[in-house]
Design a protein around this nucleic acid. Structure first.
Lengths: 157, 157
DNA sequence: GTAAGATGTTCTGTATAGCAGACTATCTCA
DNA sequence: TGAGATAGTCTGCTATACAGAACATCTTAC
């Protein structure tokens, strides 16, 4: 069955393109923020209590734990977050947002929301909501399910 | 308006996580293919005539033109595609898929489809279709619209 | 209480990927 | 014919991720 699929129908291609567009947008919006878009996500997490320690935070955000170290170094140097010793586990550091960080985050959230709206403008309001909901559902539910097992038992052409 | 947004509601976060999951899956599925998932996309494009030359191909796939050079080097060495001089413009090369490339592509398409289905399994069939359609629409329509202009005229908190 | 192993964080070095810029060949237009 | 633009390639730099070691601390078994 030679189905001449166009790349436009490829999930990986669409995902990649949307991702790149969003990343570019986000980078411009949060320009100047240490760590760029990922620094922003750290702020979001810190503002909500987030996962207790750096490792959990790194895993949640999909960055290496060694990267989280200097990412937090920069954010701390900019006085947007503080590393606080966890009283229950002196190995761990709690990441708490500072007042300055909270103010910065509030501003960035607005700008980002506006920029995202423009980015999603090819879709109408209902579709935008759908897309956000579907991605959120997929992102939260998608455990480490190995989607490859399924591909293993496909015989060759 | 301090809206304590969870990162779960962040489009960038969801997009990144889904993207990473898909990328990991795709990398395993196309393991051994020169260029990985991007080599796959080159094959898809080559199989459909695609954009005439390397530069257009690179732009469509979101890779740098210098990267496309060695990406094609590898694919050509594996005899999956051929660089053909464009008779109309001797600077340009047309990328054509070989029979081996077509066979490989057919196999990979099947595996990838199965793996993607598993990846999207948190969504029901209708939702999967929606997501694919929305992403495709966004990816094809989203021109170089600068979504940042919108964010510029937001006053601070 | 102590020893052994696990865990959180940081540091170091290495491999890789991307990008900017130069360069050649060719095309286009005046 | 000449000037500038474009396609492809090559070179070198920088950023980034990742593996592994090191150190402090926790947890569990004895």
């Amino acid at each position: 069955m030679t189905t001449p699929q166009h790349v436009e129908a490829d999930l990986g291609w669409a995902l990649g393109k949307v991702m790149r567009a969003h990343l570019r947008t986000a980078q411009e919006v949060v320009a100047g923020l240490p760590g760029g878009p990922r620094g922003y996500q750290v702020l979001v997490e810190a503002a909500n209590g987030g996962p207790g320690n750096q490792l959990a935070l790194a895993q949640k955000l999909g960055v290496d734990r060694t990267v989280m170290t200097y990412l937090l170094d920069e954010l701390e140097k900019a006085e947007l977050v503080r590393r606080q010793p966890d009283p229950a586990d002196r190995r761990a550091r709690q990441i708490v947002i500072t007042d300055a960080g909270r103010g910065r985050l509030c501003d960035l959230e607005r700008r980002l929301r506006a920029a995202e709206e423009a980015l999603l403008s090819p879709l109408d309001a209902a579709e935008q909501g759908q897309l956000r909901a579907l991605l959120a559902k997929l992102a939260t539910d998608a455990g480490p399910a190995d989607a490859c097992a399924a591909a293993e038992q496909i015989e060759n052409c």
